[in-house]
Design a binder for these strands. Sequence first.
DNA 1: TACCATTGCCTCGACGTTCTAGGTATCTGG
DNA 2: CCAGATACCTAGAACGTCGAGGCAATGGTA
Lengths: 110, 110
Amino acid sequence: MANQKADLLQGTLDMLILKAVSLSPLHGYGIIQRIRQMSGEMLEVEQGSLYPALYRIEQRGWVSSRWDLNETGRRAKFYTLTPAGRTQLEAEEASWDRLALAIAKVRQAT
Amino acid sequence: MANQKADLLQGTLDMLILKAVSLSPLHGYGIIQRIRQMSGEMLEVEQGSLYPALYRIEQRGWVSSRWDLNETGRRAKFYTLTPAGRTQLEAEEASWDRLALAIAKVRQAT
DNA sequence: TACCATTGCCTCGACGTTCTAGGTATCTGG
DNA sequence: CCAGATACCTAGAACGTCGAGGCAATGGTA
């Protein structure tokens, strides 16, 4: 309630997902919650964005998945970051830093 | 030469263009050069991205255009930021700040 | 003179990502 | 029993950016 909802910029979702699962394996629904919580309720990932993204990310080998039970005993599909995924995460973070720096430069220009 | 080329994230181009023309009216080709220069050669906007974006931005009333002569006497289409465009620029900067903050929070999460 | 690089504008189609809007099933609490 | 949360998924549309092309005028140089 403290903030306006802002759509994600295209290209940032993968980084957020990889970061979320880098802490510990997690299922899709939980990824949404973890991103919301980590961002201080500022980021709300839509299911319709998440599941296609997860599929894409798994195809690329950045996460692996398996069905398992969550802490309440319900079946859920857990995603784990692969080594390639960690490399990718680092690359995306570096890329984000570069872009953020470049934009900061543009904004401070007189 | 000091950096890898990074594609823009979808949604950031408008802000860059508005910022570029906020300094002084400028024509399309010059906008590309100014963004490159302001960003310290980090951002390279493609013509195929710029001209459709300029059209879109003008349709929305954020810039106005008129044909004029540049300093070397060549005809070029100069774009000027409108008051609505300035408001939009401020909104996009605020939106960027929110997103950057949210992403920073996610990244520092343990 | 001929040529080429640069400046300057534009269009088109392909592409990838995200969103909206649906759908299904299970579990829990009231 | 029912509503809401949890948990998965898909299809189609919307959108912005990119790559590749095209055109014309200018300036320098071979």
